[in-house]
């Protein structure tokens, strides 16, 4: 899942057009546009608007580890003429008080790189953009997401950045980064989770013992490839013929442990 955020209406329009995003029913103070696997939040331009927009979005629709958040904005150069007029990936941020924050840049990309600061913390060529909004966004988003899930791209020349070819390259890369970084499958399927719930019921297990059972069966699946492999129908039998009481359940659980652990 990929969430785009912007406060720029030109960028929002380009994104809606390129990705085929449709207006979603109003649920947040800011307009949302979406399609399967992608969503756009259009917030106000003030740092407070940006922070509250992203916080509201991530609280209302948490994506966990399978989410990539990408902020796209027009870049305001710290020194005129120093910024490339192409999309630039921000590799560092600096707040008003000098506090820094860094994303993890894990996916290979074709963009320029540089820093975005509330105010330039030093005179080095690293700091490219004056961007209080970027700082507000990363601070808010970092309460919800890992550093590799938050990316900010800025473009000092929107005319060039929103031209057909550069913008296609940008959005293609964003979608591919989402596939690379944020699409993971859990060890247990929903069906296997349900099997564990049934088994715990069949054996009269307490909450703590249910957690132990789950850990045991995760190990079983990882070491043998499936929940059933090598257990000679033990699990199926337990589901079909539940234990009569807690004592029987404990004995069955211990037998299962012995079967699974080498």
């Amino acid at each position: 899942m990929i969430y785009f955020t912007t406060s720029n209406r030109q960028i929002a329009a380009a994104l809606r057009h390129r990705l085929g995003l449709k207006a979603a029913p109003p649920s947040l103070p800011f307009p949302l546009y979406e399609r399967e696997g992608a969503l756009l939040c259009l917030s106000g331009p003030d740092p407070l608007d940006i922070a509250s927009g992203v916080s509201a979005l991530l609280a209302a629709r948490p994506g966990g580890k399978n989410l990539l958040l990408i902020s796209l904005e027009e870049g305001i150069p710290l020194e005129s003429g120093r910024c490339p007029r192409e999309w630039t990936l921000c590799t560092g941020f600096c707040g008003k008080d000098g506090r820094p924050w860094y994303p993890d840049i894990l996916a290979a990309h074709p963009f320029f790189e540089g820093g975005a600061a509330w105010e330039a913390p030093d005179q080095t060529a690293y700091w490219l953009f004056r961007d209080p909004g970027a700082w507000a966004l990363v601070r808010a988003a970092s309460h919800f997401l890992a550093p590799h899930q938050i990316l900010c791209l800025r473009c000092a020349g929107l005319e060039e950045g929103l031209a057909k070819e550069p913008f296609r390259r940008l959005t293609d890369w964003c979608l591919q980064a989402d596939r690379l970084l944020c699409q993971r499958t859990p060890v247990l399927t929903d069906r296997e989770e349900e099997t564990i719930r049934q088994l715990a019921g069949s054996m009269f297990l307490s909450h703590t013992m249910t957690l132990q059972l789950r850990q045991l069966l995760i190990y079983q699946k990882l070491s043998r490839g499936s929940l059933e492999e090598g257990l000679s129908g033990f699990l199926e039998q337990l589901k079909m013929e539940p234990c009569q009481n807690k004592r029987e359940g404990k004995t069955a659980f211990e037998q299962l442990r012995q079967h699974i652990l080498l």
Binding site: I105, L106, A107, A108, H109, P110, D172, W173, Q176, A177, R179, L180
Partner: peptide
């Protein structure tokens, strides 16, 4: 990006 259009991880110490 490679020719198939998918992207890879950055090289170590990039």
């Amino acid at each position: 990006m490679n020719s198939s259009g998918s992207i890879s991880y950055c090289k170590p110490f990039s």
